[in-house]
Each structure stands twice: as structure tokens, then as C-alpha cells.
Design a binder for these strands. Structure first.
Lengths: 277, 277
DNA sequence: TATAGTAGTGACTAAGCGGTCAATTGTCAA
DNA sequence: TTGACAATTGACCGCTTAGTCACTACTATA
């Protein structure tokens, strides 16, 4: 639906500039050149719009990162992780600005737990990367290391989202790789023990049940034009309901949809579900 | 004045829980057990209250940190820095939560530059500490190091402000000292050069070239509906390009847009430009 | 061309906001 | 007890907001 996308794009521009609360529906519709009524044909409420925006971009981001981290080659893993993350921030800088302007706590309960879950997904990805890269070396220190990685990402992205200076992303990624390696290989003091993580994890809802994935896929299928990607998605949905295909076929279907911008989240969930690395 | 302090305390509790915008003056006065009118005997506006809160706590925090860093003994300097910072967060956790909930950008221009200045003060203190501790070792890397330090502080404080787990502040400080030392003594890649810092320091106060202001105004005009404010902005833009109006008229036009929620920044820049107090 | 049905409009409502001020209450010296 | 003044109140104002809905404009088929 083209209207929906227009509204999301134009609204995001305003949210990035002024924040969510400070932007009225009237402003959004003016900016789109449509009437207020037309807005409510596409979204039930202003809240539904922000939820849609967050889902749209966070799914893409999480899936992008996960794809990079799933790569077999460990050589440039950390570099690729940082590079992809910052490239994604840069590509969707308006959304990144929105997230910077509106910390999770300023939204309602639903959005808070949503963002919390995305954050947990990212944490999981980072932890799996740490384990692959540093193995036992990182056993007790992995949580501290992942906190440091997230800290690096947040301060350095703030730097260039706030002051629109051109960024040498290659150099930035290299410098963060160096920092991360230094910490991973030389740190000795554990501050975040397993028990603490258990407490933090508590409120997280694990919602990767097959039904949920089918839901996501069906929404995607609706929005897609006929294509190889759509066919692949339909086949994968059937496979989810009644497993029948050879793993190699499933993997092939997954790689078909991997790079379709609207399927990244579905691909991520499916990869987890079928345990394909 | 005791009333003023009561209001600040009770308001901070609500701000920490709900955020500044989401807390109404009515809620604050209810929570204090006073009337709405009484609030305005102590504060001229809701904005004056948040300014008072930020000044009160930021001055304390900056002073605390500066005191520790000014200490002659270099032995435990870094440890004391982290320990004091986290102790201060912990002691004034409601204020820390408020700052977490409300990034500088969500406030008006006065508060934004206020917070920016406090941030600069903190940066200066951190940089002087780095220079004392690591001397020439840190010459090219000092800005990167200070960014890492700020990153550590923000991620780890988020950890315990969000999840109210008891924190071993001694262990936390030790672990951050270790991380900082590792980075300071082994990092080789500079990402933030002097030039970048110059750019960052620049824009806030000195960014009053007419072209820039026109840019800001034009963006505002685009997003506004027809109104007295919009007309005023358009006239002010013309005045910026070709001065023709009487100062009194300019002042009047400025006061027209002063309180429009989306013109505050433009009003600020214009006020500076026309030197109207 | 007539018609049915969808897409789009914008004046409108109710609620909530920051801020004001005439009216009320409290205080204390005379 | 009185009266003058200061402190305090909360109904009220003007304004903005998210959301609604009776209406109109379009479009596609018959």
C-alpha cells in the first residue's frame, strides 16, 4: 500500500527533527499533502504509526546484523559487524535519530517491551559473535564485552548523528575492532555475572512460535508483488506448517528472500526456526 | 524557600517515572498536595522548573567530578573518577533517569545549549584527567579515549538505572579502570582527530550565519500551516536577506513566533542575529 | 452516460494542556 | 475582635491535540 509508505517516510522525517510527541498528526498529513482523515485510513492511531516504523526498521537492522554474523568466515567478522551496523545507521539516519531522541522509556508499555526485545535479539547476536571469535577466552567476560561493544556503538553513532560530519566508516570500524580485541584478549575483571543477566532477561518475551512466524510471513506476502521472493515465502510458510522439504531446499529458499527489503525479518525468524547457520 | 524545594523533589520523582512532557503541572501539584496556583508562585513556568532541576544537579555533579580529578594524588585518580561518577548517579538516580529519558535534543534551545555546555565541561575534565594519566601516550588518542570513557559510563549506568539491581560499585569502578588502561596503553588507531573536535565544538553558539538561519527558517515554513506565525517567519526571513524594517517591528515579529513550539530554535537564532534581548 | 462503490476531506468534538486571577483563607498586630 | 495584608486556591481561559464522521470527488464498470 503506497499511502502507508508515504506516511511512514514523511512522518519519520518529522519525528527525526522534532521527536514523536512534538509532531502532530496534522503536521504529518500536511507534510504528505493529504488530509487528516486519509491518515486514519492507513493507521488506526498515531501509536500504530510509531509501532509500524519501529518494527519496519528494527527488523531490517536486526536481520542485517544477524546475516553478517552468520557468515562462515571469521576473518573479518567483527569488522563486518561494526561496518554493517554503522552503514545501517547511516542509511536510515532519520530512524536512528528518532531512536536517539526517544529512549525506550518514553514510550508506552507495548513499545517499551518491543524495543527491549529487539535489544535482546541484538544482544544475542553479539554474544554468539563473541563466543565464535574468542571462545573460552570470553567465558566469564562475554557480557561485559557485549556491553562495551554496545557502548562503543552508541557513543560513536551519537557523534555523527548529532553533528553531521562525514564519517570514514572503514576507519571507524577498524578502530572499534582494535578496541574490542584489546578488551577481549586482556580484560580480567568480570563485572556482569550470569546471575545479573538472568535478572535482566526476565521481562523478555520469547515469541518465535511457528504461529507468530506464519503471521509475519502472511503480512509480508500481502504486501509483495508476484516474484521469486514471494513464491519462496509461500513455500517456506507451507514448510513451517508441514515440514516436507529437504534442508538444502529450505536453505535455498531462504537465500532467495534474504536480500528482499521486506523479508529480512521473516528470513531472520525462519533461519532461527530451521536452525540454519 | 521550602516550597520550591518540595516542588523540585516531587516533580523530579514524576519526571523520572514519566518524563518531562508527559508530566502535567496538575500532577505535580497534586503530588505535592498544593494547588496549581501555588506552583506558579514558586516558578514562572514549567520550563523554569526543569531548568532549575538541571542546573541544581548538573552543577553538583560537575563540581563533584572536578573535585576528584583535581586531587593531587594520581594513584587512584581513574578509580576515584568512576567511583564518584557512579556514586553520584546512584545518589541522584531520579535525576539520572530523567536525563536518560530526555535526551538534550528533546528540550528547547536554551536547555539544549545548557546541557551541551555541561557536557563540554565534563569532557574537559575527562580530557585533563587523560592527559595527566597518560601524557604524550594519549596525544592523538585522547578524544577517542574520552569517548570510550563516556560510552562505558553511559552503558553501565543504563544497566543499573533500568534494572534496579544492587551494584558493587567498587568492582564496577575497578573493571572500568582496567578497560580504560588497556585501551589507553594499547590503542593505535585514531578515529577522532583534532579537526573533528573543532567541528563539534563549533556549531552551537557560533552558528549564526544568515544563510544557516534562512535554511532553518525555510524548513520551518514548509512544515507550518498558514498562520500569523508563518507570516511572521516569512517576513523575518525577508528581513534577514534585505534589512528594511524598524527594529520594533522585528521585535514584534519575533515575539509572534516566540512561543510556537516549532519555531523556538529559529527564534533563538534570530534573536542572536538581531541582537534583541 | 449513469451508477455504485471506494478514496479522500476537513470541520468538528472532547479532552487535556500551561497559565491566570478574582475570590477565599490564614495570620497577626492593634 | 477587628481589619489589613499576604498566602493560597481552583474555576476558568485560550489553545492544541488525537481522533471522528457526514460529506464530496473520483474511478471503473455496465
Amino acid at each position: 500500500m503506497a499511502k502507508k509508505q508515504l506516511i511512514m517516510e514523511k512522518a519519520l522525517e518529522l519525528f527525526a527533527k522534532q521527536g514523536f510527541e512534538a509532531t502532530s498528526v496534522q503536521q504529518i498529513t500536511d507534510h504528505c499533502g493529504i488530509s487528516k482523515g486519509a491518515f486514519y485510513l492507513s493507521f488506526k492511531s498515531k501509536d500504530e504509526l510509531i509501532v509500524a516504523l519501529i518494527d519496519h526498521f528494527m527488523r531490517q537492522f536486526t536481520a542485517d546484523i544477524d546475516f553478517v554474523v552468520s557468515d562462515k568466515n571469521e576473518e573479518d567478522l567483527l569488522y563486518n559487524f561494526y561496518y554493517t551496523a554503522f552503514q545501517s545507521f547511516s542509511k536510515h539516519s532519520d530512524f536512528a535519530k528518532l531512536l536517539m531522541k526517544e529512549p525506550a522509556q518514553s514510550f508506552n508499555e507495548e513499545l517499551f517491551s518491543k524495543l527491549h526485545n529487539y535489544n535482546k535479539s541484538l544482544e544475542k547476536v553479539i554474544l554468539s559473535m563473541i563466543e565464535r571469535l574468542y571462545g573460552d577466552l570470553s567465558k566469564d567476560l562475554k557480557y561485559d564485552l557485549s556491553f562495551c561493544i554496545k557502548g562503543f556503538m552508541s557513543t560513536y553513532s551519537e557523534l555523527y548523528l548529532l553533528y553531521k560530519t562525514p564519517i570514514d566508516m572503514d576507519l571507524l570500524s577498524q578502530s572499534l575492532v582494535e578496541k574490542t580485541n584489546l578488551l577481549a584478549k586482556n580484560m580480567t575483571i568480570t563485572f556482569i555475572p550470569d546471575e545479573l543477566i538472568e535478572i535482566i532477561d526476565q521481562p523478555l518475551i520469547e515469541d518465535t512460535s511457528s504461529e507468530k512466524i506464519v503471521e509475519v510471513i502472511e503480512k509480508n506476502i500481502e504486501d509483495m508483488e508476484d516474484s521469486i521472493e514471494k513464491e519462496s515465502l509461500i513455500l517456506l510458510k507451507q514448510e513451517l506448517l508441514e515440514p516436507a522439504l529437504h534442508p538444502a531446499i529450505v536453505k535455498g529458499l531462504l537465500s532467495n528472500i534474504q536480500h528482499h527489503p521486506h523479508c529480512k525479518w521473516a528470513a531472520y525468524l525462519l533461519r532461527k526456526h530451521f536452525e540454519i547457520k
